[in-house]
Design a protein around this nucleic acid. Sequence first.
DNA 1: CGTCTAATTGAAAATGGATTTCAATTTAAA
DNA 2: TTTAAATTGAAATCCATTTTCAATTAGACG
Lengths: 149, 149
Amino acid sequence: MRKILTNTKTKNQFKDFLLTQGLKSTRQREIILDEFLRAGSHLSTEDLYLRLRKGNPHIGYATVHRTLKLFAECGIAEQRHFGDGQARYEASDCDEHHDHLICVVCGKIVEFEDPRIEELQLEVAGAHGFTIERHRLELYGCCLECRQV
Amino acid sequence: MRKILTNTKTKNQFKDFLLTQGLKSTRQREIILDEFLRAGSHLSTEDLYLRLRKGNPHIGYATVHRTLKLFAECGIAEQRHFGDGQARYEASDCDEHHDHLICVVCGKIVEFEDPRIEELQLEVAGAHGFTIERHRLELYGCCLECRQV
DNA sequence: CGTCTAATTGAAAATGGATTTCAATTTAAA
DNA sequence: TTTAAATTGAAATCCATTTTCAATTAGACG
């Protein structure tokens, strides 16, 4: 069960982060991390908050917001913006980077990676004297299903 | 004077747009377009509003905002988001697309284009059944000047 | 020219997601 | 335990964006 192993690793990573930063493990943080890992990727704070409310009506929006920021800080999640004005978070799958294809009709988000593009990015940046820390590549278009309707 | 010719063309494009949409040419719209073309690219609404206020204290923020949206609608400007929480607009240079290098230290924005990357994007999208309408590629890093300090 | 209708303007208010405040609560170290 | 510091959550605040609305203006038509 690879998924379960990954989740355990992620949870430990978060615990280590809390320890080394002098922060505390709380029931809320555990619940939020559980739900975050269970839910699909690309959730907004609102999305996660609403999901959590079903089983945990006591958890506040502010706590979800702050906890997601902690996830991003400690590297187990990444914040993304897809132009609809709200931040979305996705679990960082180990060390591999990926970019996104977004269907402008149905909103579907597909992940992809292409080392050749990454290579060219480095080359272009170098030619302008830049070192790259991170990048964002999003392709907006129409998916197969939406073209067939 | 290529720049002046381009500006005339842009202005005509805007006038045509207003005509065909049943909208009106106003003094404010002319002034805002002039200042937009005169100012460098990547201005936020606030930036442009402040610049305008110097010579035209009567022009309101809402008007600048609405006019920039008109520019984007008619294709003479494009809206961008670079993650600092505010929209920026840049003049559309004819039909050529370009991407951005952003220095995370000093905020400098450099434009570039690379047909090889564009080509690979098409290929990747096709492999996932997507057609591409537009894309966004931003490389965040550190520029030469900031590394030397 | 005037007249008239619809578009425009700009100050102010509303919106909406993100963030902060603060008193009460909880964690975990001593 | 006791205690100091971190956390929580409801509410308040922030801040860019967007909308409202009464007054103004553009420009079509007679």
